[in-house]
Design a protein around this nucleic acid. Structure first.
Lengths: 286, 286
DNA sequence: ACAAAAGTGTTCCAAGTACACCCATGT
DNA sequence: ACATGGGTGTACTTGGAACACTTTTGT
């Protein structure tokens, strides 16, 4: 065994079979859905961009945008080229999420997927796919005791919908803790999507939700100018809970800079416009 | 271009050149360094496990433990086998960190590195390498304005030492923000380590430091039984700052469970022993 | 007039900060 | 006796939670 490893160190490029490697991108946006009441503001709706597969495996199923990488380029460059080629988009926030590499995740052959989360402004036009509304419901955590630790289990229902098309996905998330390690396992109970894409989307949603709290990532989903109510509605849509207005304004005041502009013709009192304060220091970016 | 992609979808396994893929593991522990004063408690010291390379590239340089993956196994299994084979260790916390894939990171050929952070109890015996003390100093962030955004720059000095051996590493970390994206770039100014391993170690250290705040990850570095001062010293060593005792005890009370056991023969008042409360719910694990 | 959103003020409570102080032990 | 760590109490400050209330607009 030791011999094998030394050999590898010397001749790494030739001996073992290599995996195929893909980059896969979870694209999110916050879409404004107009109201039929002239007084009411549009509602913000979380959406993910999906594309219907034209070939097996998972022919005709929807999946996220991705491609096999080309060794001519850096990984990030491969990702950007893929996005440009397939959707024609160039302006977005991105960050690497996680690398999935389970043996059975692709029925054809061994494929590693380096996943990215991308955030778009709602006005960006993307080609070759559709935006699907995202509705995620998480059950309460159930606690189970084991010999030397605990297992926390929850169910996640991820529904994606668009003009009558409805894609249902049911995941089970387990956190397994013992006295040395903590593991997170995600099982697909049911999925209408291709491959393990529902897991990747869930992972991205989870990351986004967490990053809302300690970064200014929200601005990647908004226009350059926005009202505080718009900002609040955006947080509420992603977090899935209502926030109190007065408190929200105080908390976010350090994140934004007021402009000398106001909305008008809105059927209610005009609202001051703000822009992001890019001078705000994020606590950390991974 | 579209043709090429369709082709890929169908025959993904054969057409493009594939990269070599390695797993690399940043192993941390908190080592107690005994004091010569009978009253004083041992000091906790952060350490990383490094191994000296026997072959080019970077012959004789120190690096973290890693191997090329074997397609017979899942990625995690490959990682565990590598650790078992090279260091003979089996009990540790682990989590995936990030996948590095820059074109020039390996001088031989294109290599992607899927990196993991591993946390060990100080009593675990590891073979084929040495533990190095870690000292990290970060400069203040410098702010620079650009056309449509800001750049934050800081210097990171990562010193690793062991019995007179001293390895110095100097990184420059830049956070580049404009009105759509936020990017983190890390450049190596100088490194005594192999490859880009100093970046991977810095990344792991950063993750660990952040996770201290919202998880109970610290217990993976401690014995099953510990005193609150030991716990406090562990936090202080990783965070690099002193904490106030009374406040610390209140804050961590929900993380631990008291035992009916006390230390003795310590040259000072006996101290109650505690164990981790595994029932504590981490806010999130990535 | 009124519905909807914009915006401010106040009270209460929880949690973090800083610090003072006493206790118990082995040499 | 004393150095060291173990452990508690308290006053102050900060920030979040809940809620009441006023303002401004278009139809």
């Amino acid at each position: 065994m030791v011999e094998e490893e030394d050999y590898l160190e010397l001749y790494s490029d030739s001996e073992y079979e290599k995996p195929s490697v893909s980059v896969d991108t979870v694209m999110f946006r916050l879409k404004e859905v107009a109201s039929n009441n002239y007084r009411k503001l549009p509602k913000k709706k979380m959406q993910v961009f999906l594309s219907q597969r034209k070939f097996p495996p998972f022919e005709n199923k929807y999946g996220i945008i991705g491609t096999f990488i080309d060794l001519k380029y850096d990984i990030e460059t491969s990702m950007k080229l893929c996005v440009k080629n397939k959707t024609n988009a160039e302006n977005y926030y991105y960050e690497q999420l996680y690398t999935f590499g389970e043996k059975q995740r692709d029925p054809r052959t061994r494929v590693l997927s380096i996943s990215y989360m991308l955030l778009f402004n709602q006005n960006e036009k993307l080609e070759n796919g559709k935006w699907f509304n995202i509705d995620i419901k998480e059950s309460e955590q159930r606690l189970e005791e084991r010999e030397n630790g605990y297992v926390f289990t929850k169910d996640v229902f991820l529904q994606l919908s668009n003009d009558g098309e409805i894609l249902n996905n049911h995941l089970q998330v387990q956190i397994i803790k013992n006295n040395v390690n903590t593991l997170k396992k995600i099982n697909i109970i049911h999925s209408d999507l291709a491959f393990d894409h529902c897991i990747i989307i869930y992972h991205a949603w989870d990351r986004l939700k967490n990053k809302l709290e300690y970064t200014d990532i929200i601005f990647s989903l908004l226009d350059n100018k926005f009202t505080l109510t718009e900002l609040k509605n955006s947080y509420e849509e992603i977090l899935g809970e209502k926030l109190l207005d007065a408190n929200f304004r105080r908390k976010t005041s350090r994140l934004v800079l007021p402009l000398n502009e106001f909305t008008k013709e809105a059927g209610h009192r005009p609202s001051q416009l703000f822009r992001a304060n890019y001078n705000f220091k994020n606590k950390n970016i991974d």
